[in-house]
């Protein structure tokens, strides 16, 4: 449909949505169109969390979000995480704790954790932290190192 669109602000840079079909998912716009391939596609049906990005600072599944539906919003992907203070803390915690093996789930976990720490603050209970990360799946680590990284990031911010 021909109309003026407000685009998106991705990792602080304005991106145009001109030419993006109405039914295109944010996941495909990010990866296919803008080559921001750090965001991963797992199940494409809402069940694994690999595609998690931040929309207006809040964890959102990019596989179930139309790009046109979030026009005008600020989007943060793993490529932009180093310019975020909480993002840097979470990245360091993942590195120190060795919270990844193949790394496919990592961008989703990092964005989910950054969003969660911003929404709930560094006082969030361990139980809530674990529960609210449970929508992200990992086939490699067994989750123990990821949990340690999440708690380390929380301590570092507290």
């Amino acid at each position: 449909m021909a109309r003026a669109r407000r685009g998106l602000e991705v990792n602080g840079h304005r991106r145009s949505l001109d030419g993006v079909p109405d039914d295109e998912r944010l996941l495909d716009t990010l990866r296919g169109r803008w080559r921001l391939t750090g965001t991963k596609e797992g199940c494409r049906s809402g069940g694994c969390g690999a595609c998690t990005v931040l929309v207006e600072g809040r964890p959102t599944l990019s596989c179930l979000t139309l790009s046109s539906e979030v026009e005008g919003s600020a989007v943060t992907t793993i490529e932009g995480i180093a310019s975020d203070a909480v993002g840097r803390v979470v990245r360091t915690a993942f590195e120190r704790e060795g919270a990844l093996q193949c790394g496919y789930c990592t961008p989703g976990f990092v964005l989910a954790l950054v969003g969660l720490l911003k929404e709930r603050g560094a006082r969030v209970a361990s139980e809530t932290l674990v529960e609210e990360l449970s929508g992200n799946l990992c086939r490699c680590t067994g989750y123990v190192s990821i949990r340690r990284a999440a708690e380390a990031a929380r301590e570092a911010l507290g």
């Binding site: 809402g46 969390g49 998690t52 929309v55 809040r58 964890p59 959102t60 599944l61 179930l64 979000t65 989910a112 969003g115 969660l116 529960e131 609210e132 449970s134 929508g135 992200n136």
Partner: peptide, 11 residues
């Protein structure tokens, strides 16, 4: 809190 996951409930 039983529905899906945090990132699902965002939408």
């Amino acid at each position: 809190r039983a529905v899906g996951s945090v990132a699902l409930r965002e939408r």
